[in-house]
Design a protein around this nucleic acid. Sequence first.
RNA 1: GCGCCCGUAGCUCAGCUGGAUAGAGCGUCGCCCUCCGGAGGCGAAGGUCAGGGGUUCGAAUCCCUUCGGGCGCGCCA
Length: 591
Amino acid sequence: MNVFNAYKDRLLDLLHAMAGDGTLPAGLDLSRVTVEPPRDPAHGDLATNAAMVLARPAGLKPRDLAETLCARLTAEAGVAEAAVAGPGFINLRLVPAVWLGSLRACLRKGERYGDSTLGNSRRVNVEFVSANPTGPMHVGHARGAVVGDVLAGLLEKAGYRVTREYYVNDAGAQVDALARAVHARYRQALGRLSDDALDTLLATKAIEYGGDYLIPVGRVLADEMGDRWVDAPEAEWLPAIRERAVAMMMDLIRDDLAALGIAFDVFTSERALVAAGRVDDTLAFLSDKGLIYTGVLEPPKGKTPEDWEPRPQTLFRATDFGDDVDRPVRKSTGAWTYFAGDMAYHRDKVARGFQDLINVFGADHGGYVKRLQAVVRAVGEDQASLDVKLCQLVKLLDNGEPVKMSKRAGTFVTLREVVDRVGRDVVRFIMLTRKNDAALDFDFAKVTEQSRDNPVWYVQYAHARACSVARHAAEIFPGRDLSPAALADAAVERLEAEEERALIRLLAGWPRVVESAAEAHEPHRVAFYLADVAAAFHGLWTKGKDDVALRFLRPDDETLSLARLALVQGVATVIASGLGVFGVQPVRELR
RNA sequence: GCGCCCGUAGCUCAGCUGGAUAGAGCGUCGCCCUCCGGAGGCGAAGGUCAGGGGUUCGAAUCCCUUCGGGCGCGCCA
């Protein structure tokens, strides 16, 4: 049970009762009432702002209302003490049993500790990665991939039903360019295009994609198709080669994602949407609502493109939904714009029953957010909403030196290289050590360093250390049942040291971290919380180094040892639970 | 020119959707532990939350504005 929620519920019951007996006016807005841990632990275990946010609408003075509430709260079960402080805070101190109970719950639930019903099984669609299917993933994709996957995992833990989705951009000019590059590799594989001639094509940019990863693709096509398309006109081979090439690129990308531990539930093909007439449907739907019209846009102020000329275009009335300008849906060739496809795609998501949409994009797509949100509002009839998480780029460093990357020179770092070098778990964790909208340094040397500076190591070390204590306990107390379930019945009331109590309260905060991080769509909060837990645990361990009385295991006092082992096991459980959200394997020993 | 994101200790960053005296790590300085070094422990200094105005019981957080940085800005995806 989430202690904070439990007491908030009780507080709300109390407020309703007060409204019932006339102490408070009826119909007060209670949505701003919070129950939180106070900033300074000396203030107590819980603090509520209820008196301050309700005083004005109730026509009372904050301190007076606080006094009244305080008196009633003192009578609640588990409340040891309630006091008014500052401008009208009410600080509560709970009897130890409440916190000890949450430690027991943690041990009984194991990694499922922290699971929440906040989401109420509501469905959420998280779209992420969606990299063009033109080659393997590079390191720039890693952050969005991890943030999306972990956000999805976090929402699942918070009780949402999550679909992980990838939008395959297989309909634009990029995949045509891919097909041309593959066709050249196909001719090369058949000995019908010399290496020099290929180099010339690349140098003149007749071919856009020059990576070696296309060589095997050319060979496969040569095997499958023989030489029938060597001299055929482009119009004949392009669709078939494009389809085959895209499929193989998606295999490549799926492998890369698997190396990072990521699997998608749904891949949606842009080309299939277009072919099924979904773009036409969407435009017709919006047109019926008067949201499509022909008009002429103003040139962007201060930065008019050279070739600007006013021309009538088919536009979506995005400004009706908060966008800065109406957006074109059709090119002058008559073809749909990329945006038109995206409109159909997001309508498709809503049609599949999702009202909560999340997209994870690179920061360079920031300019795209408003128009997509406008689309979602327009097609969702105000029932659906879209949140976009923009990920800033990752600076790759090696011992402080920037890793040179240049697509032209072909030295860009692939996702696979990074994963192979430092491991999947390290990549995943590090990507979450910053807010998604802040730039992130990824230093090969630092992320594998064994030091307190390195949060991955520090958190893993705490887990390993906790496991190590458990192993020692098994040696000191042979034959004892030291399973978490058994430890849940240990004499945890013997945990009386202030540091122990503080750690117990910290562990009790895990369900709250899950809920607030899920609500804010901010998985990085979990990383910071785990670092806090690790720090508190390491600190407690270190105290035992100086003072034998504080050591977890005391051969002379089995009851106390088991109580402390319960706390240690609680630490391991919460860390494992948090790493589980990250899709990171907790280690049982460091090597 | 417009829009979005960002600006918090010397450095790297947190700050729980508006709460109490703004925190952590590293670095610096002092002390402890140690044969020495490394690692570790205790403590201290360090802040106009980029500047200014506003909203209210209360602002790093919300609004306006200035400055500074990043990204984007009609047929590319």
